[in-house]
Design a binder for these strands. Structure first.
Lengths: 342, 342
DNA sequence: GACTAAATGAGGTACGTACCTCATGTCAAT
DNA sequence: ATTGACATGAGGTACGTACCTCATTTAGTC
């Protein structure tokens, strides 16, 4: 009944402890046939390495790095808070977390930061950044150095990142579209769409998914072209105000990007506030208050706590060459309304 | 920089390792003043016990028990699957899981099962059962034996359970009500409500929340009295079929309980299928398919995987007398629609 | 069969903590 | 001053694994 140990493996394989150790830790100097015999024994008696004992013996300290932009969007702050919270309890799993911030929209600064990292003092990197050629190169270098890398929130599919921690943004856009369609109902109307930037992969994908659903299931609703805000709050306020003045047919607003402060500010005291259906992404202080005040109807979000914990789990696993449990690492697309706000 | 150990504490407090050990493990034979000195030193140098090393030394094996009904509702199977999945990886955190099943609606069998448990071979119990006087007594006995207990899915507030792992069911009902109101829109109509049993606390609370929101925000919708199904599929089919025949004003159906198979079966080929708004609880094989097939509009759910993992974490913490991180143990009320189905 | 290189074994220490024993210290009551 | 009770110290072993050294065996080559 008791869990088998390395000594049991040694006995079962008819070799010494030292040989089992060499096999387990992939050290050289063991004949292929012996390796097989040991592995067979491991299989047969169901040995599983005691990771905690191993880490204790190894005096393992995982040194992880999060790379984030200093974008003015509140979502990034939320993410940063989640990292801070994970850090406070990370001591328990021998994980040390550093955060590197790079100026928003400055790929050179980002690349410079990434260049400072190396395999000696970092066991894993989680990156939230747009995919540019420079970033691709920097990631390739880190990978060739043997540093595990995960993309955070926005995927980097054309790089060698080991894993993507975040939601399927097309599906997130589809979800927002479905809700918009259902909420607007038979009457229909037009929908204004605000995106941060058409450079940001997640924004583009959400818009794509939104349009898909609208075309498939809600033909009575007209979706207007995207308005790019570039996270500029002043500009956004002007654009939204003007749009609302000129287009009485607008019945809904879909905020695709990571920040919705300006939009909420405009609408809070607007005369059309009551009749407007508002759907945004990411649960932050702003969207939370807007939901509570019945100003916003739904928020499509992702749990940043999960994202951070998942990123750390995946990086630790990759760093140890272990497999990950995919079902546990799937990040859900959450729908938050006034009533299930926490 | 390195994490302080017991030896550092001993040095800082000016006592021996043995005394620190006595203090840490609450063993007798240490003067009050010395205890204080050691605790001060712990505080000052920021010592945190290495739980993994401690468990290794202690050869700790957490023996946890889940107590579940054999209700025919699919949700219980889903929960059982989640426990099975958690069990497969529980080896890593020295946790052994047993499942005890009791016949649905038979409190005596349940109490008999609980009586068989004792502090010697169980370090924690997670219970999903209705709160009856017998159950209360059984729980009180276990608690007086020093066994940590958490209520699962449905709370047992009048018992001495240490914690409740599950959602706020009033809020869950409110969420369902909000969606129903939004989906039905200005036109309104009547809503049929199906509950498993008015004995089940979670069902009652959901119904309560649903009615609250309807009364507050959607006065144009008439909510009909609850229909009790007692998880009897044949009876449910008859009741629903009849109701739909007699009441052309019904525009929505809210399924409060843990099972929706019969409801889905009736509606799948029903002529009014298209015009009906359907909202149910718990993501199972049945509701999942119904969402996918556009038969159901939304499911208000709770992640059983989280519930199981959270229950185990809480029980381990209680068993060690450690505090729990409440933010991590909060179970979210999830809204699942066709587009964010995983 | 002698030589060499590679493979394996034997045995140790260490990680941070738990838990044990035995010796020695302290203090107050007698 | 002696006794006894209690407090504390010293030092050990153990948990399961990593990693080290050195000796010994084995396999392959000539």
């Amino acid at each position: 009944m008791a869990r088998p140990t390395v000594n049991d493996v040694a006995r079962a394989a008819g070799v010494s402890l030292a040989t089992v150790d060499r096999v387990l830790n992939a050290r050289a100097g063991v004949r292929e046939k012996t390796v097989e015999r040991v592995n067979a024994a491991i299989e047969q008696i169901g040995y599983v390495r005691d990771v905690t004992a191993a880490n204790l013996a190894r005096q393992r300290l995982y040194q992880m790095v999060f790379v984030l932009p200093d974008a003015p969007a509140l979502f990034v702050d939320t993410l940063r808070d989640a990292i801070a919270e994970a850090t406070s309890s990370s001591l328990a799993d021998r994980t040390e977390v550093r955060i590197i911030t790079f100026p928003n929209g400055n790929p050179h600064a980002l690349v410079k930061s990434l260049r400072a990292l190396n395999a000696d003092d970092t066991d894993g990197v989680a990156i939230f950044a747009p995919e540019t050629p420079h970033v691709r190169d920097a990631i390739a270098r880190l990978k060739s150095d043997g540093v595990p890398i995960v993309a955070l929130v926005s995927d980097l599919p054309n790089t060698e990142r080991d894993h993507f921690v975040g939601i399927d943004n097309i599906a997130a856009g589809r979800t927002a579209g479905f809700l918009m369609g259902k909420f607007l109902g038979k009457t229909g109307g037009s929908v204004m769409v605000l995106v941060s930037s058409m450079q940001a992969r997640d924004n583009v994908e959400r818009r794509l998914g939104f349009d898909q659903v609208m075309a498939e299931s809600f033909r009575q609703i007209e979706v207007l072209p995207s308005i790019e805000t570039h996270d500029d709050e002043g500009a956004t306020e002007r654009l939204v105000t003007e749009m609302l003045r000129n287009r009485p047919d607008i019945a809904g607003i879909y905020s695709v990007g990571h920040g919705s402060r300006a939009l909420v500010d405009v609408l809070r005291d607007h005369e059309r506030r009551e009749s407007m259906t508002l759907i945004a992404h990411e649960l932050t202080k702003i969207t939370r208050e807007a939901l509570r005040d019945n100003l916003m109807d739904a928020v499509v979000s992702q749990d940043v706590g999960h994202i951070v914990r998942s990123a750390l789990r995946v990086l630790r696993a990759k760093s140890d060459g272990r497999d990950i449990v995919h079902s546990q690492e799937r990040i859900r697309i959450e729908i938050v309304v006034r009533e299930n706000l926490i």
